[in-house]
Design a binder for these strands. Structure first.
Length: 679
DNA sequence: ACAAGCAGTTTTTTT
DNA sequence: AACTGCTTGT
C-alpha cells in the first residue's frame, strides 16, 4: 500500500453555524449517525425508525459541512427512492443536494460501463437485456445447440435464466445451485454448463448485457484496470447505501471497491426486512459488514415512530416465530391505537367489498386516500379489488405486478429502437422479424445470420438473398429502420415513426384488444418526450420502469391523490396510516413455492413482517375462505400459517356480517351490494 | 421444411 | 395472458 495523506476538509465549519437544527429534529441515536465521523459505519435500523429520514439528514449534513455533493454517492434500491431522498434533502438544505450522485447499483454501474465499455471488449452502443430478453437469448442458443433431452424434461428458458442469474449473483457453481433448488435437472448439469458458456459468448458477440453483467462487468473492470478503479473511487468520498440487507455478493464487493480510497462508507439496513433472496440478496452482507470493513462502527435505531404499539406487537410476534432470532424488539412511545384485525371473508368478492367499503369509511373520517394502501403478495391478487374500486370510483395507483414495459406490444416497439441503436442486438432482431408474416424462428435465424456479416450497415445493404412471401415486408422494415436511423428525430419522433410502421402489425397480431394496446403506445410516445436521445430512453426503459408501472385503468377524474395498491415487495420503505393486507392465505403468503424450503419460508415470514410494519394506525389482514380454481371448482382455503396461534390480544379475529337490505337507505345499498347479481 | 393456428397447462416477488 | 406441444396448411 502506498502512503496515505489525509486532507482536511476544504472549509471547516463550526457545528453551531449549521443551518439545520439537527439536535432538535433527531433523536440521540439518529443524531449520532448523522454526525458520525469518517470510516465505515453500519446502521441497523428497524422498520419505522426513521431510517430514510436519518439518511436524508446525513446527506444534508455532509453537504453542509463542506463535502462536495458530486463526491457523495447514494446507492438505493430503486431510482424512485433515490430521487425522493435527494428531493427531500434539497428541501432541507438547498439545491446543492441535487448534485449528489444517486441511483440503483445497476444504474450507477451502467454509467460507468458506458464510459469504459471498450476496455471490456464491448461496443459503446451495447444494449441491455431485461430478464425476459435474456431468457429469449438462452432459448435461441438452446434450440441452435440442440440439447438432447433424452425424453426427460429440460429446464425451460426462464428457469435456465434464473439458474444462470443465481450462479452469477451468488458467485457459486452451477452444480451447487442445481443441488440446492433444481435437483430434478441434476442430470443435465453438463448441458447447462455448456449453455452457460455459450450464453456469455453470445452476449459479448452481439453487444448485449444483462442485469447481472452490469454488476459483474463493473467488478471485472475494476480488477482489470486498477487505474480506473482508483480514479472512480477517488470521486466517492462518501458512499451511502440504503437497504443493505438486500444487496448481493457482487454489490457488496462494489461497495467495497468504491470506498477503497476514502474508506467512508455508511450502510443502512435491517436484516429482518430482507426479502430479495430469490434475486441473490444475502443478508449475511449486513451481518458480516464489521468483518468485511475493518474498524467499522455499528449503530442501532430501535425507536419506532411509525406504528402504534399494537401493530408493533403483531410485528414482533411474527419475528418471534422465526427460526433465526433477531436481536431487536421494536418499541414506541405511542400508546393506544386499535388492534390489528384478522378478517375472514366468505369469498373474493366479499373481501373486495369489505376493503373498499372501509376505505370509504376512513375517508369519511378525514384520512386521505393517499394515506391508505392495500398490499398483497402477488401482482394479480388485486384484480378483483381493482374492479370493485373502479366501480366505486375510488382512484388508485398500482405498483408492482405486471409492468407496462413487459407487455408484448411495448417490447415489440422497444425492439425496433434497440436494433437502430445496436444493429448487433440479435434478440431484438429476432423479435421484430418474427412479427413479419411468413417469418418464423428458422427464417428469422437465417436473416440474423446474414445480418451478422453486414454489421456495419445492415440497413444499407441492397442484396436480399431471400425469397418468399415476406420479402416485401422485410424491405419495408429495412426502409423504416434506415429512415429512423438517418432522420434527426427526437426519441418521441422515432417512436412515432416506428409505431406508424408497427400499427398494422399490432392490429393483426392482437386483433382482439389492440385499441387498448394502442393507448399504451401513445403513452410510451409521451414518455419519450422527457429524453434527449435514444440511448437514454432505452436505458430508462430497461432500468427504471417505474414510470411505466402505473397502469391507469381509467383516467382519474378527480384530483384527489389516489389510493396505493402495491405488491409487498414494491411497498418497501413506504408507510401509510391505514394498511390492508389482502389474500393472507397459506399458499399465497407463504407462497406455495416456498413451503419446501426452510430459507424461502423464512423469507416469506419477513415479507409479511415488512407488510405489517408499513402500517401506522390501522391494520387489517383479510382472506377469502372459499376460492375458485379452474378445474376443481370451489375449495376451502387456509389462512396464512404465520397468523395461526396468534392470541386475540395480538391479532383480533373479526367477522363480516351482511346487513339486512331493508335496514339500509338507497345510497348504502349502492355501496354494499354489487350492481350485478351474484354468479 | 417451415409457419401458423389451436388446445391445454401454468402464472411469485424485481434490478 | 403466455408458454408449450401438437396438428394442419402452404
Amino acid at each position: 500500500m502506498s502512503r496515505k495523506f489525509i486532507l482536511t476538509p476544504e472549509q471547516e465549519l463550526p457545528v453551531s453555524s449549521l443551518t439545520i437544527p439537527y439536535q432538535e429534529e433527531l433523536n440521540e441515536a439518529q443524531l449520532e449517525v448523522v454526525t458520525s465521523g469518517p470510516g465505515p459505519l453500519l446502521v441497523v435500523a428497524g422498520a419505522g425508525t426513521g431510517k430514510t429520514r436519518t439518511l436524508i439528514y446525513r446527506l444534508a449534513y455532509l453537504v453542509e459541512t463542506g463535502v462536495a455533493p458530486e463526491h457523495i454517492v447514494l446507492l438505493t434500491f430503486t431510482r424512485r427512492s433515490a430521487n425522493e431522498m435527494l428531493n427531500r434533502a434539497t428541501g432541507l438544505l438547498d439545491g446543492r443536494c441535487k448534485r449528489v450522485r444517486g441511483g440503483t447499483f445497476h444504474a450507477f454501474c451502467l454509467t460507468l460501463l458506458k464510459k469504459h465499455a471498450s476496455k471490456l471488449g464491448y461496443p459503446d452502443n451495447f444494449t441491455l437485456l431485461d430478464s425476459s430478453d435474456s431468457a429469449d437469448v438462452i432459448d435461441v442458443i438452446r434450440t441452435s445447440s440442440s440439447v438432447k433431452t433424452g425424453g426427460k424434461r429440460f429446464p425451460r428458458k426462464g428457469t435456465l435464466q434464473s439458474i444462470f442469474s443465481a450462479v452469477r449473483n451468488r458467485g457459486v457453481s452451477i452444480a451447487s445451485i442445481l443441488e440446492s433448488g433444481y435437483s430434478q435437472f441434476a442430470d443435465f448439469e453438463a448441458d447447462i454448463e455448456r449453455l452457460f458458456g455459450s450464453y456469455a459468448r453470445y452476449k459479448k458477440h452481439h453487444g448485449l448485457m444483462d442485469y447481472d453483467d452490469l454488476l459483474i462487468l463493473t467488478l471485472q473492470l475494476f480488477k482489470q484496470e486498477p487505474d480506473i478503479l482508483k480514479q472512480e473511487a477517488s470521486l466517492c468520498r462518501h458512499v451511502l447505501v440504503d437497504e443493505y440487507q438486500d444487496t448481493n455478493a457482487a454489490q457488496a464487493l462494489i461497495v467495497k471497491a468504491l470506498s477503497s480510497v476514502h474508506g467512508n462508507v455508511m450502510v443502512v439496513g435491517d436484516d429482518a426486512q430482507s426479502i430479495y433472496r430469490f434475486r441473490g440478496a444475502d443478508f449475511t452482507n449486513i451481518l458480516e459488514f464489521p468483518t468485511q470493513f475493518a474498524g467499522a462502527s455499528v449503530l442501532k435505531l430501535e425507536h419506532n415512530y411509525r406504528s402504534s404499539q399494537k401493530i408493533l406487537n403483531l410485528a414482533n410476534s411474527l419475528l418471534e416465530q422465526a427460526t433465526r432470532k433477531h436481536d431487536k424488539q421494536l418499541f414506541t412511545l405511542r400508546e393506544g391505537g386499535e388492534l390489528p384485525g384478522l378478517v375472514p371473508a366468505p369469498d373474493d368478492r366479499f373481501e373486495s367489498r369489505f376493503v373498499s367499503q372501509l376505505i370509504l369509511q376512513f375517508r369519511e373520517q378525514g384520512i386521505g386516500l393517499h394515506e391508505m394502501a392495500v398490499l398483497f403478495r402477488n401482482g394479480h391478487n388485486s384484480f378483483d379489488l381493482e374492479m370493485e374500486l373502479n366501480r366505486k370510483n375510488i382512484p388508485f395507483l398500482k405498483y408492482g405486478g405486471l409492468k407496462l414495459a413487459e407487455a408484448a406490444h411495448i417490447k415489440d416497439v422497444v425492439a425496433y429502437l434497440k436494433v437502430i441503436e445496436n444493429p448487433r442486438d440479435a434478440v431484438a432482431w429476432n423479435r421484430i422479424l418474427l412479427l413479419l408474416e411468413g417469418v418464423g424462428p428458422k427464417t428469422a435465424g437465417k436473416i440474423i445470420e446474414w445480418l451478422d456479416g453486414h454489421s456495419d450497415g445492415p440497413f444499407e445493404v441492397q442484396e436480399r438473398p431471400f425469397s418468399g412471401a415476406y420479402i416485401e415486408s422485410l424491405t419495408a422494415l429495412f426502409a423504416m429502420l434506415r429512415s429512423v436511423k438517418k432522420g434527426n428525430q427526437t426519441p418521441s419522433g422515432q417512436l412515432e415513426s416506428i409505431i406508424a410502421f408497427y400499427g398494422p402489425i399490432l392490429q393483426r397480431v392482437y386483433y382482439e384488444d389492440y385499441p387498448k394496446r394502442e393507448q399504451d403506445l401513445e403513452h410510451l410516445i409521451g414518455l419519450g418526450t422527457s429524453y434527449s436521445n435514444r440511448s437514454s430512453l432505452l436505458e430508462s426503459i430497461a432500468l427504471d420502469p417505474i414510470e411505466l408501472t402505473a397502469i391507469d385503468t381509467e383516467p382519474t377524474e378527480s384530483d384527489e391523490p389516489p389510493l396505493t395498491l402495491s405488491t409487498i415487495h414494491s411497498a418497501k420503505g413506504l408507510e401509510f396510516k391505514v394498511v390492508f393486507i389482502i389474500q393472507a392465505l397459506d399458499g399465497v403468503i407463504p407462497s406455495s413455492y416456498s413451503v419446501g424450503d426452510q430459507e424461502s419460508l423464512e423469507e416469506e415470514r419477513r415479507l409479511l413482517y415488512v407488510a405489517v410494519t408499513r402500517a401506522a394506525d390501522y391494520l387489517f389482514l383479510s382472506y377469502p375462505m372459499l376460492q375458485f380454481r379452474r378445474y376443481d371448482g370451489q375449495y376451502f382455503t387456509m389462512p396464512s400459517r404465520f397468523l395461526e396461534h396468534l392470541p386475540p390480544e395480538i391479532l383480533e379475529p373479526c367477522s363480516l356480517v351482511e346487513q339486512q337490505p331493508n335496514a339500509l337507505n338507497a345510497a348504502e345499498k349502492q355501496s354494499l351490494l354489487p350492481p350485478s347479481t351474484k354468479q
